[in-house]
Structures are given as structure tokens and as C-alpha cells.
């Protein structure tokens, strides 16, 4: 318990540091933050309204006053965030909250399916290649994963877009958001290719990780004992060996979360997914600072929460870690 609390406290700290840094740099990039907030060329009335809505936003200057000035604004902003008032995108005439409602589901499903595709690729290949190490199929799979690991997502996106989406009617060229519970088939059509763009590389990396760990595990005494007990090979592999070999894989899932986010920006651009990544690029181009801050804050929060979750998952999987943590 104590362990979980210290972990959570540490991750809150990480969250604060990262979001503060984002605020700092957006303010550096903005000479007149009120005007940027208001959406550029607008009338005085609009400027006054924005000033009323966000009285704490102001330009900071001076060598020594700069950071305290931003920090003060950060406190107001953080308070707003916690109370659910994430701000307004005047440019789009939309509150940031509405923006999330519109954009977040697409990004969520993109990332979710990418991880699922990654795991669907990684687990069977990792387990099989370790079991039949250096066999012909293992060699082919190894080559395949090296190709996938070496291929930038950009290239893969182009391949899928031109090689698959534009040739087969089945997949649309631009992704529209359709919830899976509304129409699973349409959901699949729209999300498969962008998710594959992200998931293939993940699957390749994870399958190599899992293979290496499985090979070590399969050489350990307790696997020999399981065999000597007459346990079926499938059970030896999937129950005894796999569980002992997944810690690095799980760690990698957590570490890849930030990579996944940047990948999502690429995939959303290419496939026109109406997600947060797409919106973030727009916000940067238009200096929509509240939107930038809110989106980055949410991304950081998700990454951090996944990390906390993975960390707690270690205890679930390994009783020795559980005991160590219980002792503090």
C-alpha cells in the first residue's frame, strides 16, 4: 500500500513537471498569449472577452520574473484543469472539453488496437520462436521482425495507404470515427490500417523481447522439472514459461506508450483519423495554446497512468516482487 502511494506521488510529480515544461515553452513561443488564445486576427471586443474569460493569462518577460510569472499562471491553469474547465478553443468555437469528446475516442481506439495487434503478433511468434529456436520458421520470423523493426512508420503508412487502402474498396482512404458498438464492421474497416501501422512495429519489437526471455526461461531448472513431471508441452510453454517471461514485455508496453503517442500523430495525419494527434498538429500550427496544453496534459496523464498500472501489474505476476513491496 505504502508502495503504491509513493509510486502514485512520484507519477503526480512527473505529470506536474512535464505539463509545466509544456506551458513554459508555449509561453516562450507566444508574444501575445491573449491574441493567440483568441485565435489571431480578431476584434477588440473579442480580445476583451478572452481577457475576461482567462484573467490570469498574460505575457511574461524579464530574465528573473519569467519563470515565477509562468508558474503563477500554471497554478491557475492546473486549478482549472482539476475542476474540469480545460479552456476554450476560440478559433474552433469549441470548449476544449467538447474537443476531447469529439477527438479522444479515435485516438483511444487507434492506440488500443495497435497494442492488441502488437500483442497478437508478439506473443505467438515470441513463444513459438523460442520453442523452436533456430528452426527454419524461427529464422524467417526473425528476418520478418527485423524488417518490421527497421521500417519507419512513415514508410509503412505509405505502403498501407497506397498498397492496400487505395486498391481495395474495403478500406477507406480516410478514417472516420465509428464506435465499435455502433457498427463493428465499419469500425474495423476504418481503424485496421492505421492501427496496423502502429502495431506491426510494436509486435516485431515485442516478439524479439519475448523470444529472448522465453529462451532463458526455457533453460531454467523449473521448466526441466515441469517436463520431468510429465506436464504437457503446451502447458509447460503457456503456463510455466510464458508467465515467467512476460515482465520485460510488460515493461516494454509501458515504455512504448510515449512512442505510441508520437506514432499516433503520424498515423492520424496519414489516414486522416479525426483524433487528438491530428488536432494537436492543427493547434500547434495555429498557436492554439490552451488546446496544446490540454492535449499534452492528457497524453502525459495517460502515459503516466499506464506506467502506474504496469508497475502494479508486476506485483500481480510475481509474488516475490509483491513481498518485497509489502516490506517497503
Amino acid at each position: 500500500m505504502r508502495y503504491a502511494l509513493t509510486r502514485i506521488a512520484r507519477f503526480v510529480l512527473v505529470f506536474v513537471i512535464v505539463t509545466f515544461l509544456v506551458m513554459l515553452v508555449t509561453r516562450i513561443g507566444s508574444k501575445d498569449p491573449i491574441r493567440d488564445l483568441a485565435g489571431g486576427t480578431v476584434g477588440d471586443a473579442q480580445m476583451d472577452k478572452v481577457r475576461d474569460d482567462f484573467p490570469y493569462v498574460k505575457a511574461c518577460s524579464g530574465t528573473f520574473e519569467y519563470i515565477p510569472c509562468v508558474a503563477k499562471q500554471y497554478v491557475f491553469w492546473a486549478k482549472d484543469m482539476v475542476t474540469g474547465n480545460m479552456g476554450v478553443s476560440y478559433l474552433k468555437s469549441q470548449t476544449v472539453f467538447e474537443m476531447f469528446q469529439e477527438r479522444a475516442p479515435s485516438t483511444f481506439f487507434l492506440g488500443f488496437w495497435a497494442i492488441i495487434i502488437g500483442l497478437i503478433i508478439a506473443v505467438p511468434i515470441g513463444v513459438y520462436s523460442a520453442y523452436k529456436r533456430d528452426g527454419w520458421l524461427d529464422r524467417i520470423l526473425s528476418l520478418g521482425s527485423y524488417v518490421s523493426i527497421s521500417m519507419p512508420q512513415l514508410v509503412l503508412a505509405v505502403l498501407l495507404l497506397y498498397g492496400v487502402a487505395s486498391r481495395f474498396e474495403f478500406f477507406p482512404n480516410r478514417t472516420n470515427y465509428i464506435a465499435p458498438w455502433e457498427n463493428p464492421v465499419e469500425h474495423f474497416k476504418n481503424f485496421f490500417l492505421p492501427s496496423l501501422t502502429l502495431g506491426l512495429g510494436l509486435g516485431a519489437v515485442w516478439s524479439r523481447l519475448l523470444r529472448a526471455d522465453m529462451i532463458l526461461t526455457l533453460q531454467s531448472d523449473f521448466i526441466n522439472l515441469a517436463r520431468a513431471k510429465g506436464v504437457k508441452p503446451g502447458r509447460v510453454l503457456w503456463v510455466h514459461a510464458l508467465r515467467s517471461s512476460v515482465l520485460s514485455l510488460i515493461t516494454s508496453v509501458a515504455l512504448q506508450m510515449s512512442g505510441l503517442v508520437s506514432g499516433a500523430v503520424v498515423a492520424e495525419q496519414f489516414f486522416g483519423v479525426p483524433g487528438l494527434g491530428f488536432r494537436l498538429v492543427e493547434a500547434v500550427q495555429t498557436n492554439d495554446i490552451l488546446a496544446i496544453q490540454a492535449i499534452t496534459a492528457v497524453i502525459v496523464a495517460v502515459v503516466v497512468i499506464v506506467n502506474v498500472g504496469v508497475d502494479l501489474l508486476y506485483s500481480v505476476i510475481d509474488p516475490r516482487i509483491r513481498q518485497m513491496r509489502a516490506m517497503g
Binding site: S220, D221, F222, N224, L225, A226, H240, R243, S244, I317, D318, P319, R320
Partner: peptide, 8 residues
């Protein structure tokens, strides 16, 4: 120490 499955 190493012959029993540590996770079971």
C-alpha cells in the same frame, strides 16, 4: 532455489 516455479 531454481527448480520450483517461482510464480506458482
Amino acid at each position: 532455489m531454481t527448480s520450483l516455479n517461482p510464480l506458482m
